[in-house]
Amino acid sequence: MTELVFALAVGILTASGVWLLLRPRTFQVIIGLSLLSYAVNLFIFGMGRLRVGAPPVLENAEAVDPSLYADPLPQALVLTAIVISFAMTALFLVVLLASRGLTGTDHVDGQEDPQ
């Protein structure tokens, strides 16, 4: 059940993200990129195998059974990926505003489609 919900969440986020990414308004593009980054972060997390109630950190240095623990590496990767994609989104937002200011439109091409 967890797997199904998880897979659906990643799929819906990716589909919405890609659709928004292909839209003509810069704001839609940035929201699409954010949704895609959520999907990717969940996906990285899933690659460490889904475990419920298993701690990622070993409690002592004794020999322990690693199958009782969750894989900590994907969690660390997700943390890095979140920080990086957050910073990139902020940077993109600045460029978006600059483009809006310079061209007077929020179209991704900097000019409206001739209707």
Binding site: T26, V29, L33, F92, V95, A98, S99, V108, G110
Partner: peptide
């Protein structure tokens, strides 16, 4: 800025 917008979007997708 116009070129940069497309450049950033495509590189974020690539990432």
């Amino acid at each position: 800025v116009r070129a940069g917008l497309a450049y950033i979007a495509i590189n974020l997708t690539g990432s």
